[in-house]
Structure formats: C-alpha cells, structure tokens
Nucleic acid binder design. Sequence first.
DNA 1: TTGACATGCAGGTATTTACCTGCATATTAT
DNA 2: ATAATATGCAGGTAAATACCTGCATGTCAA
Lengths: 106, 106
Amino acid sequence: MDADKVFKALGDPTRRRLLDLLCEKNGQTLGQLCENLDMARQSATQHLDLLEAANLVNTVKRGREKLHFINPVPLHDIYERWVRKFERQRLSLLHDLKQELEGGDQ
Amino acid sequence: MDADKVFKALGDPTRRRLLDLLCEKNGQTLGQLCENLDMARQSATQHLDLLEAANLVNTVKRGREKLHFINPVPLHDIYERWVRKFERQRLSLLHDLKQELEGGDQ
DNA sequence: TTGACATGCAGGTATTTACCTGCATATTAT
DNA sequence: ATAATATGCAGGTAAATACCTGCATGTCAA
C-alpha cells in the first residue's frame, strides 16, 4: 500500500464524491459518473486515474465503455496503519496531556 | 470533522512522520520534532500548523516552548465515515465485480 | 459503411503547496 | 541587563495540482 497515493487521492472532494457515487452503485461508466460531477469529462478522468493509481478503484473495459469498481482494501490498510495505532493510545494520550497541563516535568 | 483538511494533512510524508514521532513520545516541542526532520524549522512549523488546523494535533504553550499532542479523534471519524462504510460492502462489491466480468448485463 | 457515442491523449493556465531566507518577538539564565 | 534560546511572522520560488480546450481513437448500430 502506498499511503501517500491513498491519502492524496482521498484529499479531494471530487474524488471522495466519486467513491460515494460508486458506493451507491458500483460498476458505473465514466459517462455515468460525469453526469453527477459538474466538470469536464477529461477532468473527471484525471480524478479517476488518481483513484486507480491509489488502487481505490479498479476498472474493466466492456466494449467502448469503462466500468469502475471500488476496491476497499487500501482503506482497510489505512485503518490498520493509521487509525488502530492511535486509537489504542487514545486514553493514554489524554492522560499525557492532562499531566502536561498540570506541569509534567515536576 | 473537516475531511478535506484531515486527508490533506495526512497526504504528506513529513506530516505522517510528525504524527509517528508524537506517537513515540507525545508532547514534544517544535525544536525536538525538528531534530528528526531534515528541513528548516519554519517549514516544520507550516506542517504542524496544517496538522493543528485538521485537529490532528493540539498544542500547549509552556513558557517559550510549544508542546504538541496527538488528537486521535479525527482519525476515528475518518474510520467511521470512510472505512466502515466500504468495509461493510466488501464482499458484495467483490460479488458485483465477479458478476460484471462474467457479463453482468445478461 | 457511416454517423453517433464513449473514451483516450496532448498540451495550456491559474492556484496551491512545500520548501526556503531574513528578521522580529518573547522567554529564560547568567 | 544581556545573551542565548524557542518560536512567530513575512515574503519569495519551484513544483505539483485541478481545471480547461481541442483533437484522435475505438466501438456500436442503422
């Protein structure tokens, strides 16, 4: 998993909207997705390319159409690497903060 | 939670490194964090400002020092909004894909 | 086969980003 | 008080980003 590509892909409202659109109806074509976006088709393509590079979306060509499918694996990897780690320390971090505010270096 | 700020904050290796550094030892000063970064202090400040704007880091001033603490709440929100949703549909998505590959429009 | 349709590809531009240098301010220690 | 220390603030630049327009290619249907 390339955390940089995944986070950067997620760091844009258009691309998050694309993921939501695919979550509502998986396997949509480029044209279908564009109908919901209010930008040129070519711009949407660039966003989808980034989602694909981050492996968040997989595509299949069917005739002259290109179908788009969500791949949830990178999101799960993000969870394992960047959420669980900090969740685990949640209480102890709050404890540290409280201690600092009370003068942690005594 | 501002998903845009959070994902953009996470979409940079320097800022993810800062979070890891704070995970190892919470409550570090700007100077301490800079020692591990290989860039000008002012650049690190800008990264920390973005982490703070995303509410991923909270700060406390103690004398002339500024202490930095991780706030795991936005990460948890990300999980709720962007991971669980897709995790839940994982199997059904794979099912959709398989069906498409076999000729979904029959 | 020919026209309509879905997508691919090649630039071009304005904005944002990630760094930098230089200087100012505030706190601590001698 | 003065010097050292920790951070804040104000630009300045090169690269990345998010759009766009125009044209090319490939597929389907009449």
